[in-house]
C-alpha cells in the first residue's frame, strides 16, 4: 500500500503552508504561466536574468499541496543557476518523481517529492511550475504551458 506520508512529507506540507518566494515580481525579464485545466492548478512564474543566469525567481498562483510546494522548492533552488544547470536539476527531479529513484548526490528539499511516483495522477502537479519556468528560461516568447497540450 502506498503511504500517505510518502506523498505528503513534512517538507511538502511546510512549503504548502508557507510557500517561499510567493510574490509577484516587479519588472521581471520573463513571465510564464503553468496551467493544469484538469484540476485548476494555475501558477505564474517570474524570472529575472543576468546573462545566462537566473538572478531572481518568484511565483504566484493556486493549486494543490504538491504543486504549490514543488513551485516553492523550485524557486529556492533555481536562484543563481544557469539555464543549463536548471535543466539538469529538473531532469533529476523528473527522473525521481517518475521512478522513485533518489539521486544520491542529494536533491535537497526536492527529495521530499520521491513519493510522488507512487501516485501517477499527481506527477503533473509536481512538474507543472518547472515546465513553466524552464520554458520561460529557454524561450523569451514562452507565455504559457499546459499539462494537456
Amino acid at each position: 500500500m502506498q503511504d500517505l506520508a510518502d506523498l505528503y512529507q513534512a517538507v511538502i506540507l511546510d512549503h504548502n503552508r508557507r510557500p517561499r518566494n510567493f510574490v509577484a515580481m516587479e519588472s521581471p525579464d520573463r513571465v510564464a504561466v503553468g496551467d493544469n485545466p484538469v484540476c485548476g492548478d494555475h501558477y505564474t512564474v517570474f524570472l529575472r536574468l543576468e546573462g545566462d543566469r537566473i538572478s531572481e525567481v518568484s511565483f504566484q498562483g493556486a493549486g494543490c499541496a504538491i504543486s504549490k510546494a514543488s513551485a516553492s522548492v523550485m524557486t529556492s533552488l533555481l536562484k543563481g543557476k544557469t539555464a543549463e544547470e536548471a535543466r539538469k536539476i529538473y531532469e533529476k527531479f523528473h527522473q525521481m518523481v517518475t521512478t522513485g529513484e533518489v539521486d544520491p548526490e542529494n536533491l535537497s528539499d526536492l527529495s521530499a517529492f520521491a513519493g510522488v511516483y507512487q501516485f501517477p495522477a499527481r506527477i503533473k502537479c509536481a512538474t507543472l511550475s518547472w515546465h513553466a519556468a524552464l520554458n520561460a528560461v529557454a524561450d523569451p516568447e514562452a507565455g504559457k504551458v499546459s499539462t494537456e497540450e
Binding site: 500517505l4 501516485f119 499527481r122
Partner: peptide
C-alpha cells in the same frame, strides 16, 4: 485545501 489533496487523503 485543494480538492485533489482531499481526494488523495480520503482515498487512503
Amino acid at each position: 485545501i485543494h480538492s485533489h489533496d482531499i481526494v488523495s487523503f480520503a482515498d487512503h
